[in-house]
Amino acid sequence: MFFSDIETDDDRDMVIDLYNKYKNLMYKVSYDILRDKSLAEDAVQSSFIKIIKSLQKINKISSPKIKNYLVIISRNVSINMLNESKKLITVSENPDEIHSGGSGLDDIILRRESVSKIAEAIKSLKPIYRDTLLLKRVYGYSDAEIAELTGVSEETARKRLMRARNKIIEYVKREEDNNDD
């Protein structure tokens, strides 16, 4: 039997529309990493196969967030391709730097404006942490799906999420300290 990730004509039209609208952007993201026209085109193709598979996650997302999602997919597909071509071994996360939940928050004060501050902290993160966090929080990816897309183990994906959280707390604390001074 044949099941499709594209469920309706609307889904199919959306995918083609996404491609026509954002293929240049996705190519640019991929080319910046791979530095090869042919590989960048391959990355766009692979990215779209992943996007089709995850269509149900994105069909209700607003336009700016979709654009960011496509960049995340393209970047990670391209990085994986680059790693594969260079046979790079991903450096494992340093467990000493990973703290479990509930740490360090007592020192910061959460206010309404903290959302903007935290958003700035997220934007300042390195892409590997930022992508992991956004895939989880915004695009509804499971740890396993994040691991598959980013080419790491589930354990590493979880550590990256924790590390991203800790870095955000550090950023907010630092900002507050600066304001106090």
Binding site: N68, Y69, V71, K117, L133
Partner: peptide, 17 residues
């Protein structure tokens, strides 16, 4: 707040592209 901020960051970054 982290979830709300992530939504905001994703939107901001999309608009900045």
């Amino acid at each position: 707040m982290l979830s709300a901020a992530a939504e905001k960051a994703a939107e901001d970054m999309g608009e900045e592209i």
